[in-house]
Structure formats: C-alpha cells, structure tokens
Design a protein around this nucleic acid. Structure first.
Lengths: 190, 190
DNA sequence: TGCCGAAGTTTCGGCAACGAAATATTTTTC
DNA sequence: GAAAAATATTTCGTTGCCGAAACTTCGGCA
C-alpha cells in the first residue's frame, strides 16, 4: 500500500463535517454520527458541485439553470417538448416556459408549434446551443472526476453500491406510521 | 447472514439512477458509471431529504427556509447575530433580514439592538420558536434514520468514511490548471 | 357533427433569493 | 481628536420559481 488508509479515528484526518457533527452532538446527544456525517457530506458535496457548475459554466456564458435546461434537452437527443423537460428537470410548468424564453432569445434553442398535435411545442437544440452545452459539460465532469478520483475504482463501486441500497429505500413509499424510534434526532448541515 | 448482499450486478436490484446512467452512457460513452452513479444518488438523496423536510416541517406550520433559520439559531444556543446566520446558512445578507422579518412577525424570534455594539442586532429564539423547531426536527431525523437504517452500523461507518475522503479532496483548493483528462464527461442528474 | 373532459402550454400574481448600494456605527490612523 | 477605513445591517431593484387560472387543442362519445 502506497499510502494506506488509517485504521483508527485518531490518525484519520478530519473534515469540516466532523466538527459540525461534534458541535451538534453536544446539543442533541442521541445523534448517530455516521448517519449525520454521511447525510451532511452528501449535502455538502452536492452543493459544492452545484457551485462549481455555476461558476465553471459561466465561462461559457451560461447560468446554471440555462445549462441544466440545455443538458436536459441534450439528454433527449436535442428534441423534446416542454412537458418532457418539466418532468426531467423536476420543475413547475411555468418555470419551463421562463427558461425556454431566455434560451430562445439567446439562440440556443428553437421553439416550433408541433404540426401533428397543435397543443404541443417542439423544442430543439440549435448548433450554438449544442456547442455551449458540450463545452460547459466538461467543466463539471472534470470536477466530479477530481473529487471521486481520490477513491480507487473498487471504493467508488463500493460507494455507489451503498448509495444504491439507501436510494432503493428512499424510492420505496414510506412503510406506514412507523412509531418514532427513541432517538430520531438530527444535527443538520449547512 | 440473514439476506446476504448480492455479489453480481445481475441479481442486484436496480434503482432509478441505474437507468439514468445507462441512458446517458449511450450519449457520452466515456462516462464512469460509478462516479456518475454516486454523484447522482447523492444529489437525489439530498433532494429527497429536502422534500421530506419541506413537507414534514409544514405539519408544524413552518416552511423549509423558516425551519432552517430556526435550526441555525438553535445550533448557536438560541442566540446569534444576523451575520452569524448569514455565514451558517450560506445566505446573502439581504436574505437573512427577509427571513428574520417573517419569523419575528410570527413570534418565533426576537430582534433587539445590541447594547455594547450598536451596529449589531441580537437575534434570540423565543419559547414558541424553540418548540416549533424541536418538533419539526424529529420529522427529518426519522427520515434520515429510515433511509440510512437499511445499512448496518459497519456499512454506515464505511459510507461516512468514504465520503469524508471525497470531501477532504473537495475542501482542498483545486490543485491548479489540470489539463483535462481524456474522458471528463458527465451524465448529470435531475 | 357537436359536445365534453383531458392534456399541453402560457400568462398572471406573489414569494424568496440575490447583488449592489445606502445607512449607521465602530475602529483605526495620522 | 477628526477623518478614513472597516463592519453590521437594511433597503432597493431584479430574477427565477411556483401555484393557480386561462386558453387552445385533442380524443371519445352520443
């Protein structure tokens, strides 16, 4: 092992979250440090990637929400309806209209009334749109790789697998009532 | 082992993210499924907890941002300045004022000009505020426990440890330039 | 054909967040 | 000890999002 993983908590370097959890434990003694630590770190990591996306994507003249919209569109091969995007991006219908408005004004998409169903609108990525998307995409990809790259391939798989099991539980509808356990507390995260 | 973890991918149940990653892999072939899977799942889990918080917290008459503010305040022992909250909650100064306005109107906090430094304002949790916070807190704690509870104690620790290592990398300032690797792509997540 | 409920999209009104500028107060500097 | 710089908070103007309502079009059914 080139730089083995420390075995004991003492020699393991501490991150911001360790301090956070410790602070909260003094207020809420029942808190499970591993649950709280994992949840907090996921929240922070997600926010961090969000910031990177926001900032990196700006170099290509896009805002986060603009990029996300282009990305959603690209994920459908460059053609979709507002309803598709509404579902993919988890947005209110009104918000989709707002986003498309801006993107159309900037020439990244075109909206044309569908000919076979005239209730619908077809949204299509223009060449300019596809280009902006493609360039901005790499910024985020690099940061994801940078962060997850500190883990080896096996560990990445392990992480992904653990999370899958958690998510499967989340996707399950809550199994009813569930008289609260003795220590249902949480310490939260930024 | 009561119900052992499946060894092969084939017998492992698939979650939403597996499909998502697969879809994107057909568009961006270089994508690392484990990186993408992990990131996507963290994003989804964070969002899920956000929704639960939003909804559960509503049962106690609070909105998410109101609860977060009370929570930040409680984390400082029930007394803080707007600047403290601004830092803890990662908010623009203007937003803090807006939030406190609402909470004061509802009787959950009190704002009093500090006597020793008259630029400052002291924000204090009222009894009503503390009560609302404490009750709403349990809702979220229960959901965190429910979700992470599908993992055993050892696995939770493992998850938390893996994430710590990733976060330590994130907390490090980006190590400069980093001429892009060959496959810096990403597939994104809702 | 003519009507009716369902579906797709946009408009409207309101809320919360942000950045920038304004205001008030303290600390520093000469 | 007064002017300048720094700090804390609020006000202002803009933006994006959301829920609800409106409008158009589609599909079925008499």
């Amino acid at each position: 092992m080139t730089r083995a993983t420390p075995r004991t908590a003492a020699e393991r370097p501490r991150d911001w979250t360790d301090g956070h959890v410790e602070r909260w434990r003094s207020v809420l003694p029942h808190l499970d440090p591993d649950v709280e630590g994992a949840v907090t770190r996921m929240s922070k990591l997600t926010r961090h990637l969000g910031r990177v996306r926001e900032q990196g994507v700006a170099d290509y003249g896009l805002q986060k929400h603009e990029f996300d919209t282009l990305h959603g569109l690209a994920g459908r091969g460059g053609r979709a309806t507002p309803s598709d995007l509404r579902a993919d991006l988890n947005l209110a219908p009104a918000s989709v209209t707002g986003r498309l408005e801006g993107l159309e004004r900037r020439g990244f998409i075109v909206r044309t009334p569908s000919s076979d169903d005239r209730r619908r609108v077809d949204v299509e990525l223009t060449e300019a749109g596809r280009l902006a998307w493609r360039q901005a995409l790499d910024v985020v990809g690099r940061e994801e790789q940078r962060m997850l790259g500190v883990l080896g391939p096996v560990e990445r798989r392990q992480l992904s697998d653990l999370l899958r099991r958690v998510l499967l539980a989340a996707e399950q509808p809550v199994p009813e009532a569930k008289a609260g356990p003795a220590h249902p507390e949480t310490g939260w995260h930024a």
